[in-house]
Computed example of a mutant assay.
Amino acid sequence: LKPPKAYNSLQKGALIWDPKPLQVKKIFEALKKGLNEYLEAHQAELDYLSGRHKDTKRNSRLAFYYDLDKQIRSVERYIRKLEFHISKVEELYEAYCIQCRLRDGATNMKQAFSLSPATKASRESLVELYKNVQECTEDMCFIEGALEVHLGEFHVKMKGLVGFARLCPGDQYEVFVRLGRQKWRLKGKIETDDSQTWDEEEKIFIPNLHEKFEIKVTELRGLATILVGVVTCDSINFFSTKPQAIVVDITELGTIKLRLEVLW
């Protein structure tokens, strides 16, 4: 998990996508769960180090004592960063929910006014409500962008293809992984001992709220390429302290699978 970066690139007037409250809710819950896992793990580490710290102090091993002291201070600093990270994410999501409720209310009122007899006052109210809906929509999109800054990084490792009888020595494959505008293209070969060699093994992806991983596998035969399969993979389960082993069925029958490891 990487700390959030400074956020200054999003301009409210440039927003063109629609907010997705349900997707944001799912990502927020997964993100908060993952951050709390990190917090619990580091709190447990701090408790362990503090216990050793007391024992070492009694035994008067000064060099080891000071080394432990440095470790404890480092963990304490990281815990404070995590706590700030969690509070910032919660603050953003709370603001998002407020704008979402305001937008829903304005939308409902707009629909009610549009069904009522047209008068000058109702037309003026409709214009104002339309403006309110637009402003809430822009604010929601702006908050979505701010929330994305706090999603960290996914370190994706290539673990190879699994295909049993489908994979033969000499076969060459290309794997294309995309997350939004981020792309990773790598080529691999099945060796005579059934091992696999790939020209790249790891890629860092920056998560976002709306995009899923798209994975395409093609077999390379001379100048020809044969599509093996295209699949999508949701990243919602990747917000975890532990590396996630991913096995994706590339073909409909699962005769060829792709193995990846994702570390957040």
Score class of each variant (00 low, 15 high):
Asn36Lys: 11
Glu211Arg: 11
Asp234Tyr: 10
Asp55Asn: 15
Pro169Ala: 11
Leu263Val: 10
Lys32Met: 02
Leu49Asn: 06
Cys233Ala: 11
Tyr93Phe: 04
Lys187Asp: 00
Glu201Ser: 09
Arg259Ala: 10
Lys187Leu: 05
Phe64Thr: 15
Leu62Asn: 02
Glu202Tyr: 01
Lys183Gly: 08
Ala30Ile: 12
Asn36Cys: 03
Glu201Gln: 02
Gly188Ile: 05
Val217Ser: 00
Val149Trp: 02
Arg123Ala: 13
Cys168Phe: 13
Pro19Thr: 02
Ala146Leu: 14
Lys157Cys: 07
Val149Ile: 11
Gln11Ile: 05
Arg221Trp: 03
Cys97Pro: 02
Pro21Trp: 00
Ala165Lys: 14
Lys5Cys: 10
Gly105Cys: 04
Arg185Ser: 14
Leu126Gly: 01
Lys57Trp: 09
Gln111Ile: 07
Lys216His: 02
Leu39Val: 02
Leu263Gly: 10
Gln172Ala: 09
Ser87Gly: 07
Ala165His: 13
Leu62Asp: 12
Ser240Val: 04
His53Leu: 08
Arg80His: 13
Tyr65Asn: 04
Glu76Lys: 06
Ala95Arg: 15
Glu201Ala: 10
Ser74Met: 01
Ile206Phe: 04
Thr197Asp: 02
Lys110Val: 01
Asn208Gly: 05
Leu227Trp: 02
Ser240Leu: 07
Glu252Tyr: 11
His85Cys: 02
Lys26Thr: 10
Gly145His: 02
Trp184Asn: 12
Lys189Phe: 01
Leu35Pro: 01
Val156Gly: 00
Phe239His: 00
Arg166Ser: 09
Ser114Gln: 12
Glu219Gln: 14
Asp18Lys: 15
Lys183Thr: 12
Ile206Cys: 12
Val217Phe: 00
Arg52Glu: 06
Gly163Trp: 01
Leu92Val: 00
Arg166Pro: 01
Phe64Glu: 15
Leu68Phe: 07
Gly51Trp: 08
Lys57Val: 09
Glu37Thr: 08
Lys183Ser: 08
